[in-house]
Design a protein around this nucleic acid. Sequence first.
RNA 1: GCGGGCGUGAUGGAAUGGUAGACAUACGGGACUUAAAAUCCCGAGGGUGUACACCCGUGCGGGUUCGAGUCCCGCCGCCCGCACCA
Length: 873
Amino acid sequence: MTARVVERYNPRVEEPRWQKAWDDTHAFEVKHDDTKDPYYVLEMFPYPSGRIHMGHVRNYTMGDVLARYKRMLGMNVLHPMGWDAFGLPAENAAMQNKVHPKAWTYANIAAMKKQLKSIGFAFDWTREIATCDPSYYQHQQKLFLDFLKVGLVDRKKSKVNWDPVDMTVLANEQVIDGRGWRSGAVVQQRELTQWFLKVSDYAEDLLDALDTLDRWPDKVRLMQRNWIGKSEGLRLFFELTERWQNFMALEVFTTRPDTIFGASFIAISPDHPLAKAMADRPEIAAFIEEAHRIGTATEAIDKAEKLGVFTGIHVKHPVKPGATLPVYIANFVLMEYGTGAIFGCPAHDQRDLDFARRYNLPVIPVVLPDGADADTFEVASEAYTGPGRAYHSEFLDGLDVYAAKKKIAEYFAARTVDNHQQGTVEVNYRLRDWGISRQRYWGCPIPVVHCEACGTNPVPDAELPVVLPEDVTFDKPGNPLDHHPTWKHVKCPVCAGPALRETDTMDTFVDSSWYYARFTDPTAATPTTPAIANSWLPVDQYIGGVEHAILHLLYSRFFTRAMKKAGHLNLDEPFKGLFTQGMVVHETYKDAAGEWLSPADVIVSGMDIRTAKHAVTGAPVEIGSIEKMSKSKKNVVDPDEIVATYGADTARWFMLSDSPPERDVQWTEAGVDGASRFVQRIWKLVNDALDLFEAAAPAEPDMSDAATAEVRKLVHRTVANVAGEIEGLRFNRAVAQIYELTNGLTKFVASVVEHPTPGRTAALREGVERLILVVAPMMPHLAESCWALLGNTAMLVDSRWPAVDDALLVDSTVLIPVQVNGKKRAEITVAKDAPNDVVEREALSQDAVARMLDGKPPKKVVIVPNRIVNVVV
RNA sequence: GCGGGCGUGAUGGAAUGGUAGACAUACGGGACUUAAAAUCCCGAGGGUGUACACCCGUGCGGGUUCGAGUCCCGCCGCCCGCACCA
């Protein structure tokens, strides 16, 4: 036998070769046909910032493994990719670099698409969509108009963060210490008329349906649950002791009506109508202004003291005849929640207690913890919010919190104040309607026209899309659409008189709220083709970052419901399975001057005490903490460089190895080197095996040969296990299984070389082929090269996942550990499913067991069949 | 503050209540080589011991169990989310 000269596997040649072959054969293009089972795997599409980063590589590799695996199972796999292409960075680039947002965005898309292609993802690129393209956003405008028709759109005033220099609305996260992140100007609270999508219409449904999402992480469901923030309570009227202007009564919302006997004050929000009506008094005006100032500095809320100002007004205590409660304006009461007014029960609410201590208001405990003594129980600096029984509460005394709430609700329901039922049971949600208006250029225009004569009217369907004008300038602050000389001047669609276009564009979260549906028929003349959308959706497996756990996923869930109502599809939940992957992190490096350094500029050495120096200057470098890869800390590794140096398969393999996918993975040189070595090991294994195949006559595996039987069991077990791990997205465990198989096969090659038989060689061929097939979803290029080397003329990409011989998964004998008092002392090999008495006899006959027994009979022998024996002495 | 998660070798991490440390990385030793790289083989939680072997060991302290990394209670530490939501 003459061993071939094995060239090292060269990904720089092989990878582009297979990428081209897949392209040429349209391997990943999927048609909507119903002969095969559909499977929809989707990764969160990227913002086209210009470069992909390792986080994308990790995210898309996971989806790709699943897509390729499901394809091998014979499923019709939809695996599309597109671009979340509207957004502020394009406008910033326009301002800084004098490049048009459209040109900038499409150049970035082209660059990133090239990068994604170089990693060999099995995307159906014929379905590519960019949300900034009129062919996409015209349908979004149609959806907006349809939502308007079915009553899911609202136009109302709302408070916004207004940057007076940039003349734009800022999101909360763009306000830093009360100032605009870009201009540094003090942000104002302004009331603007905004478009809203009525998410809150579905609050209850969005909450309830979380229970049906059993393939979502509990963590995400919990975050959504908290975000929706349902609370059940009572709306309760308090009558003023005497009328003040038009105010006869104050309405509060409370979830603790059972503590009404402990009430000692009323607090209203600085934005409450009563507070506003009193703003002519200087001390109240000053207080309101101060509260607003703190309100914008989000961080300051943490430490903000509970402050208030007394209004001079009192209300009648609703259950203590003759008693009154003072009314304060308090900085901790939010106008946006409930009624903007509360009653304070200091003994059982921490905020109320802090407030009461400051203003010397009474603290009256009315809930007694179980086991506490009514005579001695006191509330000092910590409010008691736990369960217990009502006391000091007259007709509620003795009832538990739940029963007391019920009874007091009935009591107030039967009374009236100021012609209102005094108390009404009500459910409140933290979730509010979704304000989608943005005073920006690079977004989807809101398709409405404002006419002085006819009011606000939708743009007729026939006139869609409302296309963004391209001749805009960014040299003035404010919205370029608003500055455009002609664009906004149109005829009113109703009276044909002069009218103005809406110049606000939509929040970019709208764009990403329905793209998964558009992918099912990306060239349809309507937003979706309902029959096609319904057959693909819901997405079987959605994969992305946990940072979208709340907003994007909640908005998408809302959109699915809204699109259903408007007749565009017929399902409730868009994503059946959700997986949130961890970040890619890397060490950080700083030089003596405190400047961040790129890993490429640093040489690290040493083991226990690691030191680093600059690659060029040799200057000492400080090794910093491990952080998410980010440009600002320079701890990024460029996928292009990795692909150029190691190849895409190495990067893919490393991203899947070691760390559980939901956790962060640390990018290390050593790890990448290890992955790269493994690529070569597989290549060498296949080449070594090939020498043996060429020398041997065809045959069946010889199961009478112990080494053959053993290796075949390993092969079939691994195929079965890897399938299970991929299904469960436990890629790190799949990787470990594949390592074990490779180790096993490498050893087997040596034994076949030593004692070659046709039966052994046949088993080796079976093993090597299956190894390549199970590796294929993870390292598709290497797998194709090996597959071709093994003599296959058809591409592996069209191969099926290998069948498993179940008979090889069960052993006739089992190795069972024997414990004495729970500590392992011996192992026995017995027939599978051997009767307990046989197992017991065998176990007790072990030297180590006999020694521990010391001649005495065992107290007890626990036998778990085929698993373990525990002898209790 | 509230809610959730996590603490296992030098490192990333395995382990339906049933042999703790699979697999990988780093490390050490050996083979091959003029040499190195690559590759292959071997070793390895800590401790006692010539060996067979024994003791200790999954953040800390208790508990349940024949048996606990896993379940329960109480601490400590780290991470994440929400944050005056009445």
